[in-house]
C-alpha cells in the first residue's frame, strides 16, 4: 500500500475529497519549486503531482506549456524531478510524478519506477501512455510497488473503460473535458457522468482534473469524486505575481480556499 492509497482511505473515512496540487519541477525555478511544495504542504494540499517538463506537451494548454518551456530553458531534467519529489515526500505529503512517456523510456523504464519508489514517491501519472502500449510499464510499477495512474476521458466507454481502470492504482485520473489543461470558468456535466460510469466498474478512487481553479468547482467535484486536481491555477498565480514571495502567498490563499471546497461538497 502506497502513502497515496492510505490518503484515500483517510479522506474516505472523513467523507471528503482529497486536494491534489500540480507543479512542474523547476518552476518557477528549481529552488522556487521547493518553496511551492512547502507552501502546498503548509496550506492544506493532500497530495502533490510533480510535473516532468517536456518539450512536446500535447495534453497541455498555454499555461503549462509556457511553464515547461521556462523550466526546460533553465536545464530541468530527471535529477531535478526526483529531487522535487523527494522534497515533497520528506514533508510527509503523498506524491507522484506526472510525465509524458518519452522521458521514462529514455531514463529506463525499470530504473524510473525504481527511482520513484527510492525517493518516496507513490506512483506516476502517464498522460500519453495508452493502455495498449503500457504492458512493460505496468510490470515495472508492480515490481516496484508504486501506483500506475492512467487518464480516462469522457470518450472512454465500455470495455475500454474497464480495461484502463483495471490497471489504475492509487487513483483513476478522470479528465473532466475533451481538451487540454488550463484554468476554465465552468465545469462540464461530462465530469459527473464520467465519474458515475467509472464507479460502476472500479472501486479505485477517482480524481477529477483539467480546468479546475476555484473553490466552487472544487466543491462541486467533491460532491461526486474522491479527489480534485488543480494545476494551471497555481502556475497562473505564480506567473502573475510581482515576485516569488507574493506568488507563494497567492498560492497559499488558493490552496486554503480549495481545501475548504473539497470539504464542502457532501
Amino acid at each position: 500500500m502506497t502513502s497515496l492509497d492510505e490518503l484515500f482511505v483517510k479522506t474516505r473515512a472523513e467523507n471528503r475529497a482529497a486536494l491534489i496540487a500540480y507543479i512542474p519541477a523547476g518552476y518557477p525555478t528549481h529552488e522556487g519549486c521547493k518553496r511551492v511544495i512547502e507552501t502546498f504542504a503548509k496550506s492544506g494540499v493532500d497530495a502533490i503531482e510533480i510535473g516532468f517538463p517536456y518539450s512536446d506537451p500535447v495534453m497541455d494548454g498555454p499555461t503549462i506549456q509556457a511553464a515547461a518551456e521556462q523550466s526546460l530553458a533553465a536545464g530541468t531534467g530527471a535529477r531535478e524531478v526526483f529531487e522535487s519529489l523527494k522534497h515533497a515526500t520528506e514533508l510527509g505529503i503523498p506524491s507522484v510524478v506526472m510525465t509524458y512517456w518519452n522521458p521514462i523510456e529514455k531514463y529506463g523504464v525499470d530504473r524510473f519506477a525504481h527511482d520513484i519508489a527510492a525517493n518516496g514517491g507513490s506512483g506516476v501519472i502517464t498522460p500519453d501512455l495508452t493502455i495498449d502500449e503500457a504492458d512493460r510499464w505496468i510490470e515495472s510499477t508492480h515490481s516496484n510497488d508504486i501506483n500506475s495512474i492512467f487518464v480516462i476521458a469522457p470518450s472512454t466507454v465500455g470495455e475500454r473503460l474497464e480495461k484502463v481502470t483495471s490497471h489504475c492504482s492509487g487513483f483513476v485520473y478522470a479528465a473532466s473535458i475533451m481538451g487540454v489543461t488550463g484554468a476554465r470558468g465552468g465545469l462540464s456535466t461530462g465530469a459527473s457522468d464520467l465519474v458515475a460510469r467509472t464507479r460502476a466498474v472500479t472501486p479505485t478512487p477517482i480524481a477529477v482534473g483539467l480546468g479546475v481553479s476555484t473553490r466552487e468547482q472544487a466543491k462541486e467535484i467533491a460532491g461526486f469524486a474522491d479527489g480534485v486536481i488543480v494545476g494551471s491555477a497555481f502556475i497562473n498565480a505564480l506567473r502573475d505575481a510581482p515576485d516569488l514571495e507574493t506568488g507563494l502567498e497567492h498560492v497559499a490563499q488558493l490552496v486554503k480556499e480549495l481545501a475548504l471546497g473539497v470539504r464542502e461538497g457532501r
Partner: peptide, 10 residues
C-alpha cells in the same frame, strides 16, 4: 503504436 491522450483513442 499509439502514445496519445486517451481522449484521442476513440
Amino acid at each position: 503504436g499509439r502514445y496519445v491522450p486517451e481522449a484521442l483513442v476513440g
